[in-house]
Computed example of a mutant assay.
Amino acid sequence: MLGKLREDYQPIPLPPRRSHAAVDASEVDAVPSPALRLQQQIARSVATIPEEKWSPRASVALIVSVSLALWLAIVVVSVELIGPVFA
């Protein structure tokens, strides 16, 4: 009986898949999706932001200060946990 069922099985054909590029703009606007509305709002607001670049000096200062703060935190935590090394 099981063998006969497998022979008679016919898969249901699926509709052809469309990429995002193939979706018509009118179809996108027709979908009342809050996520899509948020994406469109963010895209509009980001497009109007002027691009300001940091100077190399400011970038290096940020990297050095963050690195020093990280190493200072590591030293303070290790001294609190282990105790003074050279005491």
Rank of each mutant, 00 (worst) to 15 (best):
S78Y: 10
R44F: 03
P84I: 11
P84F: 12
S26G: 07
P13S: 06
S45Y: 00
A30Y: 10
S55M: 04
Q41I: 02
R37N: 07
P56C: 02
R37E: 11
A73W: 01
V75P: 01
V76H: 01
E52K: 15
V60P: 01
V64Y: 02
L36T: 08
L72F: 14
S19Y: 03
H20T: 13
Q41C: 04
S26L: 11
S59R: 15
M1R: 07
V23N: 01
W54T: 13
M1H: 06
S55W: 02
A25W: 02
L81E: 09
L5G: 11
S55N: 03
I82T: 13
A43E: 12
A43D: 10
L2N: 15
V23H: 02
V76Q: 04
P34F: 00
P34G: 00
G3Q: 14
A22Y: 02
V76Y: 03
A43L: 06
L14W: 05
E51M: 10
E51L: 13
A35H: 12
L81D: 05
V23L: 11
P16Y: 06
L5T: 09
E80K: 14
I49Y: 05
L38A: 13
Q39L: 15
W71P: 00
I42K: 09
A47H: 09
F86L: 14
S78K: 07
S59N: 08
Q41P: 00
V85Y: 08
A69F: 00
P50A: 04
A30M: 05
R6G: 07
A22Q: 15
L81I: 14
F86G: 03
P15M: 03
A22W: 04
A30V: 08
L14P: 00
P50G: 04
V75N: 08
R18I: 01
L38I: 07
E52Q: 15
R57P: 00
E80C: 12
L5I: 14
A25D: 05
I74N: 05
V85G: 02
W71Y: 12
P50V: 06
D29H: 14
S78H: 07
V76N: 00
A21C: 04
R44S: 06
S33H: 03
S67W: 07
V66D: 05
K53M: 06
E80Y: 13
I63E: 08
Q10W: 06
S59E: 12
I42G: 00
S78T: 11
L72V: 09
I82N: 10
S59Y: 08
S19A: 12
P13C: 01
V23G: 00
L14R: 15
P16A: 13
E7W: 07
A21G: 06
V23E: 01
A35P: 00
V76P: 01
L81P: 00
L2D: 15
E51D: 14
D29S: 14
S55E: 09
P56S: 03
V28G: 00
S26E: 12
R17T: 08
A61F: 02
S45D: 10
V46W: 05
L38H: 07
L5K: 09
S78C: 09
V77Y: 04
S55A: 08
D29W: 12
V75F: 14
V76R: 04
T48S: 15
V77C: 06
L36D: 01
V77R: 04
